[in-house]
Nucleic acid binder design. Structure first.
Lengths: 220, 220
DNA sequence: AAAAAAATTTAGACTACCCTAAAAATAGAT
DNA sequence: ATCTATTTTTAGGGTAGTCTAAATTTTTTT
């Protein structure tokens, strides 16, 4: 049987919340993420468990089964490929594409996904730096650093963001921080942990701890 | 309030069935087209009427209101633009795109549609020769001939199809009949109204009345 | 113009997904 | 180890969209 729009969203969110260790996800966390009440989550969990998509024991939280994992990763693949399309082909900003991709990710056709992938040149990362699962369902999370883990004087490459909120991404745009740029921490303020950062070797600016916490980077 | 996937489908189908004269559409015709029962159609009609999207009097059939027409045409615009995308950019055959576009046509973002339109170079017709409504909602149906109305010796341009069934389109592919090709009727068989047709001035083939009835053409 | 046939609507019910309120289970504090 | 707070589940219910069966209206036939 086909999975509904709603079921796919639950699986996607369970995947995101269980992290790379595949930890148990709680009912309340799901209620929060799906903007529904805990009671509604319980209903859906029973249903997903009946379909063999999650491991579920009452009061014990949930994990994806292998089959549930497959569905979740397929949805993530579609979401991220469509985001690449929207940014690369249609010229949307990286702050504008999430909502639209939330709808596009549920289009079923397998053939469509593979042709889209090929049309886009088999991109490995989406416009926010998130890795795109391959056609076989392999998803390898690169182990980036968070900018807060980088010391003064170090030069790093900007590889992704943790926060996908439009307001955060627009803030980065205004600061001139883009995927792939070189960041060099020139100073860290002891008092509030705000930092001075040089971008691509030239203009320098202050960024708050809040921003640093959400920037994924890589040593070169 | 937003219109649901299902509501949009009803409006689109009412538009199609009422033709360019905007004739009343019957409950049974809608039940047939939506693959549901007449009772279900009645329920939905009451709902659409409450929302001001259709004119509905019990037992009297329905017509779209101006606001319903706007929604229907927007859905048609999206459907046909996505079909162009699927064929022109992703390399699908014209026989493969209908189902996928049935899903894509319900993606809401207005911005997406306008950017897609622009990315595709503002196409006027979809891969089946159907006209694409413009951004303001103007839809002008070109007045093509049906091939059965063309006499022996006449040369016409192949402009569209009435039947969108994959099997019919595949049959045209095998016959070498494509959008824009020149068809010349060399002979019409009096017995079964099958015809001999020259394609682009060269190879000749037989086509049945059934096929002729579904080909839209234009005198040059 | 009445009877028969066909089309349409109403009545009552089902599934998916969501809700609130109350009950039950787990976790935390003393 | 028990009591309390928190989390989760159950119970009962609502809306959207579908169904079947029965009632009603319109159309067709005679």
């Amino acid at each position: 049987m086909q999975n509904s729009f709603t079921e796919e969203n639950y699986l996607k969110i369970i995947h995101a919340l269980s992290g790379r260790e595949g930890l148990e996800v709680t009912t309340n966390a799901l209620a929060e993420s799906t903007s529904t009440r805990a009671a509604s989550v319980t209903d859906m969990l029973r249903k997903l468990a009946d379909k063999g998509l999650i491991h579920y024991k009452k009061y014990q939280g949930v994990r994806l089964t292998e089959s549930g994992e497959k569905v979740a990763i397929s949805v993530i693949r579609k979401h991220r490929l469509w985001e690449v399309f929207l940014v690369e082909k249609l010229g949307f900003g990286w702050d504008e594409v999430h909502e639209i991709a939330e709808e596009l990710e549920h289009i079923a056709s397998k053939e469509l996904v593979e042709r889209l992938d090929s049309f886009l040149g088999h991109p490995r990362f989406d416009p926010h730096g998130d890795p795109i699962p391959d056609a076989k369902g392999n998803l390898t999370e690169p182990d980036y650093l968070i900018l807060t883990d980088v010391g003064v004087g170090e030069k790093v490459l900007m590889m992704g963001v943790l926060d996908h909120a439009p307001s955060f991404l627009q803030h980065l745009d205004r600061s001139g921080i883009t995927l792939g740029c070189v960041l060099e921490i020139t100073e860290i303020n002891d008092y509030d942990k705000s930092a001075s950062v040089r971008i691509n070797g030239s203009n320098s600016l202050f960024i708050s701890l809040e921003v640093s916490k959400n920037l994924l980077v890589q040593r070169r």
